[in-house]
């Protein structure tokens, strides 16, 4: 999808975590996995938070989660938008993300799923929305 009026800021992407952002371009939500101790973790980091190894690989996540909380941002934005905290279904971490929904459609702990937005030729971002499809 495209969303030309979307308010976003350029994240600071480093070489060690650039795979995560490449994953978004390919419509994949990637988490880091330590090749030495096996720890899966999110947010992506260049060093394993469990064993500090730099031998980090990547695994694809389901892109499902639950809404832990949200706010409608009115400040420093030309147009209000929803910002939420998502508990990833795998239980390994949380994402802070723009939410595509109206405030009245949201409920605490409701199922959510990820979607992707190409904000420029070089950057694809994530966006989460209520998961209304029956769960498999």
């Amino acid at each position: 999808m495209s969303w030309p009026e979307i308010v976003y800021l350029q994240p600071k992407i480093t070489g060690l975590t650039s795979k995560f952002w490449e994953g978004l371009k390919n419509r994949k939500l990637l988490a880091s996995k330590c090749n030495d101790c096996g720890e899966r973790f999110f947010p992506p980091r260049g060093l394993c938070p469990k064993c500090l190894s730099e031998n980090i690989g990547w695994v694809e996540l389901s892109g499902k989660g639950r809404l832990h909380s949200w706010t409608e941002v009115h400040y420093l934005t030309p147009k209000p938008y929803m910002l939420g905290v998502i508990d990833l279904a795998e239980g390994i971490g949380r994402m802070v993300s723009r939410i595509e929904a109206k405030q009245e459609e949201l409920e605490m702990d409701m199922p959510m799923r990820i979607d992707f937005i190409d904000v420029s030729d070089k950057l694809t971002l994530f966006i989460w929305k209520p998961d209304k499809l029956p769960r498999p």
């Binding site: 992407i13 480093t14 832990h68 909380s69 941002v73 400040y75 938008y81 910002l83 939420g84």
Partner: peptide
């Protein structure tokens, strides 16, 4: 970095999510 793209409004959003 994964929080940066949408954390436009300083720190208020975080305390707002906590309040909600």
């Amino acid at each position: 970095p994964t929080v940066q793209p949408y954390a436009v409004a300083g720190v208020i959003w975080a305390y707002a999510c906590s309040g909600r």
